[in-house]
């Protein structure tokens, strides 16, 4: 999903920066509020950020004969919502743009919007809906992570299609870019979902009180998940 440096016309770079910046500002404000309220969320935030770091560094071969990488934003989107995730994801994108020449500074706004904002935003909506429906935490986090991954790449295809229509057709371009990403991404979304689901359940076993204070989980489910490891 990384649009490379210089590969997006300047006007689109500006559009995506303008759309991304409010999310990051709200995210910084939410982070500060959460940490002021209870310092104990800080390690959980660090773990969520660390997972974006790890998973987005892994380029995994997929069925299409090409490689792509997970986004790792599902854990953060589930626990903290899209705004905090916007901050964590953008930190990773800046690291990659500056040190790895992967992505870029001009395309940072666009890449942040797909990976750190819109993917997590939709995924967070899915997480809230599934939790309301009473599904288990592991399953919910897993599906959320997979959705974050797939939506991120859909947004990238859309961003590229807007900037590079084929014969004037955005739809044709969206299909073309989407084909490069979509099928490649499906197995990776499943892999990412499994990893995030297992990690979420591990966190419930060792440190449930943080998730409880965030309103993610109740005592009954904590006892059930902890019972599975006994």
């Amino acid at each position: 999903m990384h649009i490379m440096e210089g590969y997006l016309p300047m006007e689109w770079c500006i559009v995506w920066f303008v759309l991304s910046i409010p999310f990051i500002i709200v995210g910084l404000w939410q982070m500060k509020k959460l940490i002021d309220k209870d310092q104990k969320v800080l390690p959980l935030m660090a773990v969520c950020g660390a997972f974006v770091f790890v998973l987005s560094a892994l380029k995994i071969p997929s069925v299409t004969g090409s490689c792509s990488h997970p986004t790792g934003t599902g854990l953060s989107a589930s626990f903290f919502g899209p705004f905090v995730t916007a901050v964590l994801g953008t930190i990773v994108l800046i690291f990659q743009a500056l040190l790895l020449a992967h992505g870029g500074l001009t395309t940072l706004g666009a890449n942040a919007f797909s990976m750190a904002i819109f993917g997590p935003l939709v995924a967070w909506g899915v997480f809230v809906a599934l939790r309301k429906a009473g599904l288990g935490l592991g399953l919910c986090v897993g599906v959320t992570a997979a959705v974050a991954n797939l939506v991120t790449y859909t947004v990238t295809s859309f961003q590229l299609a807007l900037a590079f229509p084929i014969d004037g057709s955005i739809v044709a371009a969206f299909t073309a870019f989407g084909t490069i990403f979509a099928v490649t991404q499906i197995p990776l979304a499943i892999i990412e979902g499994i990893i995030c689901a297992l990690v979420a359940k591990f966190i419930v076993r060792v440190k449930p009180e943080i998730l409880k204070s965030l309103g993610i989980i109740e005592d009954a489910e904590i006892a059930k998940i902890q019972g599975e490891a006994a």
Binding site: V63, S66, C67, L160
Partner: peptide, 17 residues
């Protein structure tokens, strides 16, 4: 995958552009 090149999908989009 057979004899695919295993290039990055990001690079694939870049080539298309």
């Amino acid at each position: 995958g057979g004899d695919s090149e295993w290039g990055g999908a990001d690079g694939g989009a870049e080539d298309m552009i």
